[in-house]
Nucleic acid binder design. Structure first.
Lengths: 235, 235
DNA sequence: ATACGTCCGTTCGCTGGCGTACAGAGCGAC
DNA sequence: GTCGCTCTGTACGCCAGCGAACGGACGTAT
């Protein structure tokens, strides 16, 4: 279930490009569908296409030994999936999983490379985005290590809302547990605590954010820190 | 106290550059000293110089709220300090702290940028290094989340040995605790367990690796994974 | 020799999260 | 309506790591 609608959905990176570059990049093509639970990149595999989401959101997941796994990044309308291509490596270090149905511009890797070679502004923009991603990654590392599940959950919900541009999305406790690297029960108790405080509402995999101010207060500082960095670097 | 000596110490990145680029980059200059406990970059500050260590090692530390902090990266003779410059951002996202005394080539940021503009191979090389750093960062995130202190300690010691090119270095339990994001007592018990198994020896801040095979077995897979990635990408 | 600072060892109670297991509740298919 | 599946709630024992505190050992300076 997609969700709320806002007038002009565009990918923020593409929107920041010079028009001619943007035109050359995505040309006449139409955005593709991002289907729930679809794996766009598998860890270790060769990347053929990169994606610039318009809505929906994509989780970047690192597989660990055993069943353990952990989400280390989140890509939505503010970013791009497949940054390693910018660095000239077309092997994906992470698994990219569509968590929120939506649409995205898809660009062939070779084509992107050609455009990047010719356009300094495009290189600069994507490099800056990469820098942001890097800082978010370190922030995630800290967060995962030190913060309580409840605060981390609140942060995740807010980040997702921003990226998907929707206050309501489909995620079960079980999936959240995978993302946060904790047990499902841990998510259940954290989520029910947030629900009791009327910050969110959920039922059978549908989560709505009721009070984002309150949720931000319940989240760890990492959320604010990430936003600040994005604003500062991408401005 | 530096430590063991090996014949031709060079920075691996510089060694991989075309000779004329390397010459242009570091010219006639001499390597500078890296002094123990010196802060080369402060988080949020402007980066003036980048460093290519020959020996010694530098910790990349992210400050969290409170006293909590966490090492998210380690730079030695295999890499470079100040990668964000490659991305066109001269604000350091992390604190860079000299942990192992040594020497390094220091390069002015503006100069590096000019060289990078002209040299495709240099860009490609540093981009690949950045990719490696990125994967190591995600690996660290996993490690920090899921693995036991003892295994993480073993990994840290091995990584440090590789970067500093020395089997012996000066680090107190207290500093290790900061790096690993745990209590000092946690380090003490993990270290003493390793020492009992004759894998390491330590006394008053001097740590020696006695049996690196055994230590590798005690470490989590992250160590091997990191090495593998480095070899694959930088080869 | 003494005094002080650094570094390491150990202990105690506490708790957040783990692994596991089971039970109810909603929803769709038939 | 009933069955089966998915999703959520709750409970129980367990443990790694936490915070705090104290004591001893080693070096170095005076």
């Amino acid at each position: 279930m997609p969700t709320t609608k806002r007038p002009p959905p565009d990918n923020l990176l593409l929107a920041a490009l010079p028009v001619e570059v943007r035109r050359r990049l995505i040309g006449e093509s139409a955005p593709v569908e991002l289907n729930f639970a679809e794996t766009l990149h598998e860890s270790g595999d060769t990347i053929r296409d990169v994606y610039f989401p318009l809505n929906g959101f994509i989780s970047l997941i690192t597989p660990a030994d055993g069943r353990a796994q952990l989400e280390v990044g989140l890509v939505g309308s503010e970013g791009m999936l497949g940054v390693s291509v910018i660095l000239g490596v077309d092997t994906s270090p992470l698994r990219a999983l569509v968590q929120g149905t939506g649409t995205a511009w898809r660009v062939d890797v070779a084509h992107l490379s050609r455009v990047l070679e010719d356009s300094g502004p495009a290189r600069a923009l994507l490099n800056r985005y990469l820098y942001v991603l890097l800082t978010q990654l370190t922030q995630s590392a800290i967060c995962t290590r030190f913060h309580l599940v409840e605060a981390r959950l609140a942060r995740w919900l807010l980040m997702t809302r921003d990226r998907a541009r929707a206050n309501r999305f489909h995620v079960t406790h079980e999936f959240l547990a995978y993302m946060l690297g904790v047990r499902r029960v841990g998510v259940t108790s954290a989520a029910s605590a947030l629900q009791k405080r009327k910050l969110i509402h959920y039922a059978r995999g549908d989560i709505s954010i009721l009070n984002s101010r309150g949720l931000a207060a319940a989240a760890c500082k990492c959320y604010a820190a990430d936003r600040k960095t994005y604003a500062r670097i991408m401005a």
